[in-house]
Computed example of a mutant assay.
Amino acid sequence: MVLGYRWSLSENYALGVETGYSRLGNFGSSILESVTFAFLGTPRAVPQGSSWKLRTRAMSLGASMKWSVSGPWTLMAHAGGIRSHATVDEGYVFMFLSRSRHLTTDRNGIYAGASFGYDITPQLTAALTADVYRVKFENGFVAGMHTNYIRVLGGSLEYRF
């Protein structure tokens, strides 16, 4: 969800500010399998592998630009800063040993995006959007900060008062 205000610079151009909140999705992978080996002459199946999950949210503050290209067609661009909250859950299992971690990271980052829209009415625009968010998070087993670029393709409806 994004809220903003745009000032008209001319008949075809407008410049504005925006703020918003985005749920940037859940990502993860899991490689868990059973391995069979003989223990005291009896075959035993034991688990081994790893799992990883990242959940990210972001609050944004930035600038936006709208250009009325031709008739009802518009191009829009926006960019700014974000404050992201990333949660990482990791697990590793090998035979009878297991290890897991839960980490949260709050960091500053940036975002940028563009959209191509159509003015349905003078107050309503429908658009196709493409955004990129740069999110940093701490990984538990591989120590240090990691940077993830989250790309979002979608649609938007803009209502103007």
Rank of each mutant, 00 (worst) to 15 (best):
F37H: 08
L40F: 11
L40G: 00
L40E: 05
L40S: 06
P43L: 10
P43R: 13
R44W: 04
R44H: 11
R44Q: 10
R44T: 15
A45S: 14
V46A: 15
V46I: 11
P47C: 03
G49Y: 07
S50T: 10
S51A: 14
S51M: 05
L54W: 11
R55A: 09
R57P: 02
A58G: 07
M59V: 14
M59Q: 05
G62S: 05
A63E: 05
A63N: 04
M65S: 13
M65R: 00
K66T: 14
K66F: 14
K66H: 14
W67G: 05
S68N: 13
S68Q: 15
V69F: 06
V69K: 10
S70A: 14
P72E: 12
T74D: 09
T74L: 15
L75S: 12
H78W: 04
A79V: 06
A79H: 02
A79D: 04
A79K: 04
G80L: 08
G80M: 08
G81F: 12
G81S: 09
I82R: 03
R83L: 11
S84E: 06
S84C: 05
S84F: 08
S84G: 07
S84M: 05
S84H: 01
H85T: 03
H85L: 06
H85P: 00
A86K: 14
A86V: 11
T87W: 09
V88A: 11
V88W: 10
D89Y: 03
D89W: 00
E90F: 06
G91C: 02
G91L: 03
G91W: 01
Y92Q: 13
Y92C: 01
V93R: 10
V93A: 06
V93G: 04
F94R: 11
F94H: 02
M95S: 12
F96D: 14
L97C: 00
S98P: 06
R99P: 00
R99H: 10
R99V: 02
R99L: 14
S100H: 11
S100Q: 07
H102K: 12
H102E: 05
L103W: 09
T104E: 07
D106I: 04
R107Q: 13
R107M: 00
R107N: 15
R107W: 05
G109H: 06
G109I: 04
I110E: 12
Y111W: 13
Y111Q: 07
Y111F: 12
Y111H: 08
Y111E: 02
G113L: 05
A114S: 05
A114V: 15
S115Y: 09
S115C: 02
F116L: 09
F116I: 04
G117E: 02
Y118P: 01
D119P: 01
D119I: 00
D119S: 13
D119R: 12
I120A: 11
T121S: 11
P122K: 05
P122A: 07
P122F: 04
P122T: 02
Q123P: 00
L124N: 08
L124P: 00
T125F: 01
L128F: 10
L128C: 02
A130V: 08
V132F: 00
Y133Q: 03
Y133R: 06
Y133H: 12
F137Y: 15
F137G: 09
F137S: 02
E138G: 06
N139H: 04
N139L: 03
G140D: 05
F141K: 03
F141S: 03
V142T: 08
G144E: 09
G144F: 15
M145E: 12
